[in-house]
Simulated scan of single mutants.
Amino acid sequence: MTASTHAPASVASVWRQPAQVWAVAFACVVAFMGIGLVDPILPAIAASLDATPVETELLFTSYLLVTGLAMLVTSWVSSRIGTKATLMTGLGLIVLFSLLSALSGSVDAIIGFRAGWGLGNALFISTALATIVG
Rank of each mutant, 00 (worst) to 15 (best):
A3S: 08
S4M: 11
S4L: 14
A7D: 05
A7N: 04
P8I: 00
A9Y: 08
S10F: 15
V11F: 12
A12V: 06
A12Q: 03
S13P: 09
S13I: 14
R16V: 14
R16D: 13
P18L: 07
P18S: 05
P18K: 09
A19Q: 07
Q20H: 11
V21N: 06
V21Y: 10
W22N: 02
W22C: 00
W22V: 02
A23M: 09
A23G: 07
V24N: 00
V24W: 05
A25L: 04
A27R: 03
C28T: 11
V29K: 02
V30Q: 00
V30W: 00
V30N: 00
F32R: 10
I35W: 01
I35C: 03
G36H: 12
D39F: 14
D39W: 14
P40Q: 08
L42V: 10
P43V: 12
A44F: 15
A44Y: 15
I45M: 10
A47T: 13
A47E: 10
A47G: 15
L49Q: 03
L49T: 05
L49V: 07
P53Q: 13
E57A: 13
L58H: 07
T61N: 14
T61A: 15
T61S: 15
T61Y: 09
S62G: 06
L65F: 14
T67G: 06
G68L: 06
L69P: 07
A70D: 03
A70M: 10
L72Y: 11
V73T: 12
S75L: 12
W76I: 04
S79R: 13
S79I: 09
I81K: 02
G82S: 07
T83K: 10
T83V: 15
A85F: 05
A85S: 08
T86S: 01
L87C: 00
L87G: 02
T89Q: 06
G90W: 04
G90T: 08
G92Y: 03
G92W: 01
G92A: 03
I94D: 05
F97R: 00
L99P: 06
L100P: 07
A102L: 13
A102D: 10
L103I: 10
S104D: 06
V107F: 07
D108L: 15
D108T: 15
I110Q: 02
I110C: 00
I111R: 01
F113D: 04
F113G: 00
F113S: 00
R114A: 14
R114C: 15
A115F: 02
A115G: 05
G116Y: 11
W117K: 04
L119T: 01
A122F: 04
A122C: 09
L123V: 03
F124W: 03
F124E: 09
I125T: 04
T127E: 04
L129A: 11
I132K: 00
V133M: 07
